[in-house]
Design a protein around this nucleic acid. Structure first.
Ligand SMILES: [Mn+2]
Ligand SMILES: [Mn+2]
Ligand SMILES: [Zn+2]
Ligand SMILES: [Zn+2]
Lengths: 139, 139
DNA sequence: GATGTCACTGCAACAGCGTTGCATTATCAT
DNA sequence: ATGATAATGCAACGCTGTTGCAGTGACATC
């Protein structure tokens, strides 16, 4: 019987970093993994309202997950950062922001755009943000 | 003699909106027009330090210019908004952010990227942000 | 299973960007 | 010149995110 290739659970992913596996980290990474959209700090804090996790801890865990490559952090245009689990979507991908409900979704992209930068400019990362109306709000 | 097609001056652009042409509006739109990069509120406030313009007025003018289509407002990944004059660059264009000095430049783009959104999602605007090193910082 | 270490957490205070309310000023139509 | 009111100045505020430090809990070791 060959071992099925299961996606790493949040706990396994955390364990693999070598750092401590704490309740806050498990709860937050699990939340990001289950979410179908990019979550703000506020979203996370509300979802974890029953778990007595301090706001500062939420900030620190989110940034730590990002630094470990388990989450990625994007700047929303509401002066808020949003986070989503890495591994659900193959990079690179774009982000879709609904102007009605404010939700941000990760969407796969086909081609990367052609761009000719001015002389001397070196591109290291390309970020593609789409704004519009999501399926639920258009419905 | 045909009339030369000169680009509208800041004052003319302001006049065309039908609203009042004030010192703060002229000063700020002139600044944005002359700048070769997208300016933050901080940038504007510092540049106008000698003109006794209140910070709140700067915020209001910048947002008003945006609502009138004379400037466009982009969200920087430092939880700050940046503004640049409209009309200097043909839309659509991309934005290049230097990770070293933090400056944001408007760069023209050739092709728009191909994207297939999930069913029901309606795209209204596509924003392309490039991160890397600018010519001056690359030396 | 008990123990010790130090990574992690909780708490409190803080900083910066942007907003709101209201009195005052200055633009522009008349 | 005069008046109406759009725009400004000022003060107080809200929210996101950060920092410092004391206390706790995860995990390695025994
Ligand atoms: Mn994403
Ligand atoms: Mn631009
Ligand atoms: Zn929506
Ligand atoms: Zn630079």
């Amino acid at each position: 019987m060959s071992k099925p290739i299961a996606p790493a659970s949040p706990t396994e992913s955390l364990r693999a970093t070598g750092a401590r596996v704490t309740g806050a980290r498990v709860a937050i990474l699990s939340l990001l993994t289950q979410a179908n959209r990019a979550l703000s700090h506020r979203d996370v804090e509300q979802a974890l309202a029953n778990e007595h996790v301090d706001r500062v801890t939420v900030y620190r865990v989110l940034d730590w997950l990002t630094s470990e490559g388990l989450a990625h952090k994007i700047a929303d245009d509401e002066r808020v950062f949003r986070f989503s689990a890495v591994g659900k979507h193959d990079d690179p991908h774009a982000h879709f922001k609904c102007r009605t409900c404010g939700d941000v979704f990760c969407v796969p992209t086909g081609s990367t755009p052609k761009l000719n930068l001015p002389a001397g400019f070196k591109s290291e990362e390309v970020e593609l943000n789409i704004k519009g109306t999501c399926a639920r709000c258009a419905g």
